[in-house]
């Protein structure tokens, strides 16, 4: 084998390896959750825990998409209902995703966790026209032929902070 061929093989191998490495780094883990008939992806880096919803306690003054408080080991967590934000309808949820966000003590109401999956960044695309005007999602990917919307946690919290400021 000529030097050129060796170098070419090396460079292709290195490139393939590099692509593989980049691909493994550029994946994001999502928790795919059912909210009624719909499925949404929550970035797992924001989720601390999945909890069964035992009791939802009333809290006054908050916007309607804060459905109440849960008692997590004696600490109150505010439960956010994405279904109210998106469809103005209350979700009959049975679980909550406890958020891993400093100083929030909040959780999202869901029906169930469907699966936890790694999604290559290359498979995440911008929203189709049908969803592009909804601020609570910032991308989507396909799973089983269905477009799964990725929840934009920051945007939900921005909305919440704004609403609380003007409450």
């Amino acid at each position: 084998m000529e030097n050129d061929e060796i170098l070419k093989a090396l460079s292709e191998g290195v490139r393939n390896q590099a692509e593989e490495t980049a691909d493994s780094i550029q994946k994001e883990k999502f928790i795919l959750a059912g909210l009624g008939e719909e499925r949404y992806a929550f970035p797992s880096r924001h989720i601390r825990e999945i909890m069964l919803l035992s009791e939802l306690y009333f809290i006054p003054f908050v916007p309607p998409y804060i459905r109440g408080l849960i008692n997590r080991h004696g600490d109150p967590f505010a439960v956010i209902d994405l279904h109210v934000l998106c469809h103005n309808e209350k979700l009959d949820g049975s679980k909550v995703l406890i958020m891993n966000i400093e100083e929030s003590q909040s959780a999202f109401l869901i029906s169930d966790v469907l699966k936890i999956m790694d999604v290559p960044m290359s498979s995440i695309h911008s929203l189709s026209a049908a969803f592009s005007e909804v601020p609570y999602f910032n991308g989507s990917f396909e799973d089983g032929g269905q477009e799964i919307l990725i929840v934009n946690i920051d945007e939900v919290f921005k909305r919440l902070e704004n609403d609380l400021l003007h409450a």
Partner: peptide, 16 residues
């Protein structure tokens, strides 16, 4: 317990 930090200022302003 204090209310969750997100809603604490609002609740305290209202008297909780």
């Amino acid at each position: 317990s204090f209310p969750p930090p997100l809603i604490r200022p609002l609740l305290q302003a209202k008297g909780i």
